[in-house]
Design a protein around this nucleic acid. Structure first.
Lengths: 153, 153
DNA sequence: CTAATTTATGGGTAATAGTGGGTAATTATC
DNA sequence: GATAATTACCCACTATTACCCATAAATTAG
């Protein structure tokens, strides 16, 4: 079997009912405990982020540790949950992504789906291209930092 | 079945009888022990907070731990309970929210309902927007603190 | 290389969700 | 105690969603 992680890039289109296919590879990588369910939410970039149900449960546990009295904690929790929704894929492996998320990512017809090891990103093709060209310019400092971070000790 | 937690955002309107729909997703997430009942009360923000009957029972236990001598504790306990009322939803999944709570949240016609994992918030759309924009923008310190708080896995 | 299987996509239909309103039962008011 | 107001409980309509079947392209197996 596979590696249980998400890798690779896939190009799909949304149909008239707003359904998007999830790559078979990714569906197979889901553990049983995720019950054929992905959790989609807003990304910090202009995209949609998808977690396995398992991974999302971990995130929820973290959020539950926050104080319910401190306003900043509540605000953070609210921001993290309000755009999240668990989606079970249908018999053909598709999910219907909520309209507000499609809007946030500027998705109309085509999507690019990218495996990010422990999560998945869904992009509008043009938006992604724009990000590649402008946003993602590593300077020397960034490279240094990332290099330190990713060197196995 | 589902995730048994509340997530996502929903936009509804109150009808002429003061009834508000509770998202079917949230109703389904209720355990049997909650007996089709939610407990609504004032939020610490300018909103209404909704608990499952189960969760509310836990809250009550927590409140009982407060000091009965310290005035601030009494005040907190009083504030938390005096506006709370259990509401059973009707056959169509709606509840009639008490007028004083609607007033507190500045709700007139439209509402935004937000899943907060273990509780639910009901907002007036404009009030929510105001909060997003002005009240609680997390600064770097807050993010650092929350990040530390939620790092464990 | 061909057949069998899987994948991506399209569409039909039954079930459900959200909304509005009627009426009987209950409570409050005079 | 009669009447008004409120609440609880139905019934109905519409749009959306969930679930199923179908097909063509792509992939895998023999």
């Amino acid at each position: 079997m596979g590696t249980n992680t998400f890798t690779g890039e896939f190009h799909y289109s949304i149909d008239t009912k707003g359904r998007v296919n999830i790559p078979a590879k990714f569906r197979k990588a889901l553990p049983d405990s995720s019950e054929d369910t992905f959790v989609v939410t807003r990304g910090l970039d202009e995209n949609i982020v998808v977690y396995s149900l398992d991974k999302w449960r971990d995130k929820e546990e973290d959020l539950l540790k926050l104080s319910s009295i401190k306003p900043e904690h509540r605000a953070f929790k609210r921001q993290a949950t309000r755009f999240a929704s668990p989606l079970k894929f249908d018999g053909q492996g598709r999910v219907a992504i909520p309209g507000n998320l499609l809007e946030h990512a500027g998705i109309e017809k085509e999507v690019v789906i990218i495996g990010m090891i422990d999560e998945i990103e869904i992009w509008d093709p043009d938006t992604l291209k724009r990000y590649e060209e402008t946003e993602f310019q590593l300077d020397a400092e960034d490279i240094e930092a990332i290099d330190n971070y990713t060197r196995s000790s």
